[in-house]
Design a protein around this nucleic acid. Structure first.
Ligand code: NAD
Ligand code: NAD
Lengths: 208, 208
DNA sequence: TGAGGGATGTTAATAATTTAACAATAAATC
DNA sequence: GATTTATTGTTAAATTATTAACATCCCTCA
């Protein structure tokens, strides 16, 4: 499979999330325009994305929901479950851990790290919190590949560099500090202040 | 000012965040390539964005950090501070409230809403939590324009429709349910599972 | 005071992404 | 079973976003 555009990968994840809801609604088939409408995009976009992953429906009664879920999984999931850790189990870290735990079968949240003595060696939001000082050992032993970074901004840079040295291959950075990662490591960053400011901009003077 | 592309607005927010850090570092001037490097984008992009907002530096010793912060503020901030509320003050809502409170001078987090009797009429993460049943009155009295939605998914749709009826003009939706809003209301959605799945996809097989 | 260097603002070119167009075809209807 | 209708897969076009190119400007320093 040739490399997919990042935007398509994002949408595949959203398609699957929506399709999983369809299953709950006992809906076994869905038309491209229905799927599109639920995500506020166009039907063409859906069809084009599915074309890119080489999926086509056998019937013309829409896509087989369960089959499409599986197909998307084959594309975006890894064969073996990939292990994830939250670094910094503060307010945001706890929310993320509690939310994410068990949501996806091929992504396992297996550890959190913190340097607060009150927190280490306890189970917090469903995951064991390890002392940050043991991160090298634990990352290697548990084969952790992805880190979700929710430490205070001042530590973000150093911690990201360390974890990469210890074998982390992907980082989701929620701190306000932009990070540098070597090529071969994938980085996603999200700052909610940016989102809110964007909303505010378009609300102001009704720029819609 | 003609309408800016959403991407540019996002970057303006990021520029300002970075520039604010520069102030802390006692840096008063910054070159486009330095600003760009801190955000992992190109200097051309920076210059082009600033061109779009009609900013030009008087000196050629880089941009005046304080001046640029002000200019960006004139573009993306509203004159009067815009009021924001968090709806659903659970794990994520509390993290967001605590984080966001006081971060930006023109965006004031003035209330939260919940329907849990344990939570209402208390100050949580620095904001007063009102009973959800009073939302119509409070939104109008406090002139709240933006809602950050962190309620359980099942309630998201109904709550968003109600709040829009009561005068909300912008929604930042963190629930997993895509929402429909009438035109004239701005909607941003973010799902962290999508981000993690994207990271996982590019980590798998090293698709970098 | 004037040549050189370095950074900017802007237009033009390129690349990425989305949308449109439409032929192909299954299902529904008569 | 012919005809209509609806939906898909795919190519082509349009739009949007990014990058390159370059003339211009200011500062430096000889
Ligand atoms: N709370 C939010 O909604 C939110 C939103 C966006 C971004 N952020 C960012 O996320 C980060 C965390 O926010 P928070 O509200 O959860 O803060 P927090 O203070 O509640 O949590 C930070 C956690 O990191 C731990 N920590 C500190 N230094 C550490 C170190 N060197 N090694 C390991 N652990 C360490 C602390 O013990 C604490 O548990 C911040 O960078 C913040 O800017 C938060
Ligand atoms: N925790 C995360 O990191 C995270 C990440 C992404 C998305 N989300 C989404 O954010 C939402 C909240 O997540 P959470 O982990 O904070 O859940 P939570 O259960 O901790 O919080 C939900 C809050 O909403 C309140 N609530 C419930 N029904 C309400 C109603 N009808 N009106 C007003 N308030 C109501 C509850 O009392 C509770 O305080 C969920 O939709 C979740 O999918 C959470």
């Amino acid at each position: 499979m040739t490399r997919l555009p990042g935007k398509t990968v994002e949408r595949l994840s959203e398609y699957r999330r929506t399709l999983l809801e369809c299953l709950i609604e006992k809906k076994s088939f869905i038309f491209s325009h229905d799927l599109a409408a639920r995500l506020h995009i166009t039907a063409v976009q859906v069809r084009r994305d599915l074309m890119l992953i080489g999926y086509s429906s056998v019937l013309r009664k829409g896509y087989d929901v369960r089959e499409l879920i599986d197909t998307i999984g084959k594309i975006i999931d890894s064969e073996e479950s990939m292990n994830v850790a939250v670094i910094g189990i503060g307010n945001l870290g706890r929310a993320v851990a509690g939310y994410f735990k068990g949501k996806r079968s091929k992504l396992s949240l297996v550890a959190s790290f913190d340097n607060d003595p009150q927190k280490v060696n306890k189970v917090i939001s469903g995951v064991k919190c390890y002392p940050y000082s043991e991160i090298e050992r634990v990352v290697k032993e548990l084969d952790i590949k992805i880190a979700i970074l929710t430490v205070p901004p001042d530590f973000a840079r150093e911690i990201s560099e360390e974890t990469v040295r210890f074998g982390i291959k992907g980082i989701l950075n929620f701190t306000t500090i932009p990070l540098n990662v070597p090529s071969g490591v994938h980085l996603e960053e999200y700052d909610m202040i940016t989102s809110i400011e964007k909303v505010a901009y378009f609300v102001k003077d009704n720029k819609i």
